[in-house]
Simulated scan of single mutants.
Amino acid sequence: MNLIQTAIPDLLILEPKVFGDARGFFMESYNARTFRELTGLDVDFVQDNHSRSAKGVLRGLHYQIQQAQGKLVRVVRGSVFDVAVDLRKASPTFGLWAGVELSEENQRQVWIPPGFAHGFLVTSDSADFLYKTTDYYAPQHERCLLWNDPVVGVAWPLAQIDGAPQLSAKDVAGKGLADCEVFA
């Protein structure tokens, strides 16, 4: 597995070794020992999630203010533009975002530490998105940073979709960075 740093030091891209031939491919999508050796992190994943979304669906930017979740995310079908925003007030990268294409072709994964908001835009006809979390889903603690907050300024690749993104009511009602609860 190969580790790629992003502009935000704690946000990491992981590229697994993929072995392919005419029959298909094999890859180890997660190995605790390899993850620990590459990242220096000893995490305990407690929940796996799988979502399927149509082209143009934008999910996010979500986080849990308590029971904060670290996430290891990947796409197994289709492609998305994946985004994480640092909401750790004491961090030198507070309020900054990083984005990366995740797809079934590139097999990349992203480690998103606790303290980040996370979201993605589906850029293919549909996408199956998988993620492992370090804490359980706690809807009472879930918060949403507005996907198009001008202060954060995420450069979503909206030209890759037909029209405006499809959003849930929760995502439409997200708050701007100035009004969000953030991490110490």
Rank of each mutant, 00 (worst) to 15 (best):
P92G: 13
A22Y: 12
S51W: 07
G70T: 08
K89T: 13
S53G: 10
P92C: 12
S51F: 04
V57I: 08
F19P: 06
A32Q: 14
A32W: 08
G60Y: 04
S51A: 10
D44F: 13
P92T: 14
G40V: 08
R33D: 14
R77F: 06
V57P: 05
Q64V: 03
D82C: 12
G60F: 11
A32T: 12
A54L: 05
E28T: 07
F81M: 10
M27L: 15
R33T: 15
D86C: 00
R77V: 11
V85H: 05
L38M: 12
I13P: 04
R74V: 06
Q47H: 06
L41F: 09
D86W: 00
L41N: 11
Y63I: 05
K71R: 12
R77D: 13
L87S: 13
D42Q: 12
Q67V: 01
V76F: 01
D10E: 12
V73T: 02
R59H: 01
M27Y: 15
S29T: 15
A54R: 04
R52I: 12
G70F: 04
A54V: 01
P92I: 13
V46A: 06
F19M: 09
N49E: 01
F45I: 05
F45S: 02
V18W: 11
G20P: 00
Q47K: 09
H50S: 07
L87D: 11
I13L: 15
D48H: 10
Q66K: 15
L14K: 03
S53N: 11
F26W: 08
A32M: 05
F19I: 14
N49T: 04
R88Y: 15
L14M: 08
E28M: 02
G24W: 15
F25L: 14
D42Y: 04
F45A: 02
L87N: 11
G60L: 05
F19A: 01
F26N: 08
E15G: 00
T34K: 12
G70C: 08
A54K: 06
L12R: 14
F25R: 11
Q67E: 08
A54G: 00
R77G: 04
K89A: 14
I13N: 09
F26M: 09
F25W: 14
E28D: 04
Q47P: 07
R33H: 14
K55R: 15
G40M: 10
H62W: 02
R77S: 14
A90N: 15
S79M: 00
M27P: 03
D86E: 01
A90C: 13
E28A: 02
L41H: 14
T39A: 01
L61D: 00
R23N: 10
N31Q: 15
G60R: 03
Y30E: 13
R36D: 02
I65S: 08
R77C: 11
T39S: 07
R33V: 15
A68R: 12
A54N: 04
